[in-house]
Computed example of a mutant assay.
Amino acid sequence: MITVKKEGILLKKTELDFECDGVLNPAVIKDNEKTHLFYRAVAKGNISTIGYCSLLNPLEVQERYEYPILRPEFGYEKHGIEDPRIVKIEDIFYLTYTAYDGINALGALAISRDLTNWKKLGIIVPEITFEEFKYFSEIDKSHDEKYIRFNKFQISHQENTEEVYLWCKNLVFFPRKINNKFYFLIRIKPDVQLVAGIEKIEDLTSQFWNNYFLNFKEHIVLSPKHEHEISYIGCGCPPIETERGWLIIYHGVHDSVEGYVYSACAALLDLDNPGKEISRLPYPLFKPQEKWELKGEVNNVCFPTGAVVEDDTLFIYYGAADQRIAVVSVNISELLDELITYKYLDVEVNNL
C-alpha cells in the first residue's frame, strides 16, 4: 500500500450567514502560479452557495472572501449550488456543479475567462423522468434492477412525478479536449458514465440524450467492484493527465452498521480512449479515520473533489464529514506505480 499523509483541516465554517452550517467539497485549480479554491458553503436551511479563497501554498489560505462568488439565481438551482469542480480548457474555465431545486439534483455549468465574472449555461445533463428512464431500461437490458433500485426513491414522496428527473450528479470535465472534442464524466447511481466526443455544449440536446440512453451500457466506464465501493461510486476530482493514463480520484461508498461510509479511491483510464479502464486500487486510497472525518453533518465521509500537483506531490482536497475541508498528500509517482502493479495482476489473472 502507498503512503498517504493526512495534512489536516484547511477550512472550517464561520459565523458568516452564507457558510455558518458548513464548508465542504471544493473545486481547486492552479492558474498562473496562483491556486484558487471554490467551495460549497452551506447556510441555515441547507441552502448552498459557492465560496472562494486563494492559497498561499497547497496547505495555507492566503485570502478568503466574506461573501459567495456564486449563488442561486434561477429556478433550477433555487435550493442550492453544490459540489463544484473546475478545469481550464484552452482559455476558458469550466466550473460544474450540482443544481438543486428542492426536488431534482442535476449537473450544471458556468464558464469564465477570469475566475471572477461567470456566465451560467444552465443544466447540461439529461432531464429525463423516471418513467422515461424505465422505458429506455426496457429497450436496453443494461438498465438492470440495480438502476431502478437506486433511482426510484426520488419519486416515492413526490405528488407530481412529472417534475421529478433522474438524478445526474458529479459532472466533471476532462481538463483538455480529446481529438478536439469535449469529454466529461457523470454519475447516475450506482456507476460512473462517460460522455464523449462533444464538439460544443449546445450539442447536448434532448435527441442527443435519447440516443445516449439507447446505448447506455457502452457509456459505463466505472462500476462498483471492491468491498469499500460496493454500494455505489461517483466522480471526484477532475481527471489528471499522466504518462500512464488519466488518473481518476473518485469516491466509493459501502454500507456498514453505522450507515454509508465514503472513501477516496483511485483508478487509471486510457489517455486516448477514456472509456477504457486500465487499473484501479483494490483498497481505498484513504478513508474516514480522523475524528473530523468520522463525525459531522454526515458521518464517515471523505469526499474528494479537487486536486493539484506540485512537483511529484499530489494534493487532494475533500469534504470531511460534510462539514469541513481537509487535504491529503501522496507521491504521485508512487501512486501510479501502485496502480500499474494492479494492471499487471489483472493481465496475469486473465491469462491463467
Rank of each mutant, 00 (worst) to 15 (best):
R280H: 01
G234L: 02
V125P: 02
S206Y: 14
F173P: 01
Q154F: 15
S112V: 02
G319D: 04
D31N: 14
E297G: 15
D91L: 07
R149A: 15
I89L: 02
P239K: 01
D322C: 07
P239H: 02
C53S: 02
L37F: 03
S48D: 04
V347G: 10
L95Y: 00
D144P: 09
E131W: 12
K287C: 13
I316R: 00
L339V: 01
E90A: 10
A110V: 08
E338Q: 08
D114S: 07
G51K: 01
N179F: 11
L314S: 01
P26N: 04
L171G: 09
L285P: 01
V253M: 06
K88N: 08
F93D: 05
S156D: 15
K146A: 08
L204Y: 03
R176L: 13
L16C: 08
L95V: 01
F208Y: 11
K152D: 15
E60M: 11
R85N: 07
I233L: 09
L109H: 00
A264M: 07
T129C: 02
D21I: 15
P274D: 08
E338D: 11
G51R: 02
Y52I: 05
L247M: 00
T205S: 10
E66S: 13
Y318G: 01
E63H: 10
T161L: 06
P175H: 00
A108Q: 04
T96H: 05
W118G: 05
A196T: 10
E73V: 12
K189A: 15
D191C: 12
N210H: 14
H143E: 14
F18D: 04
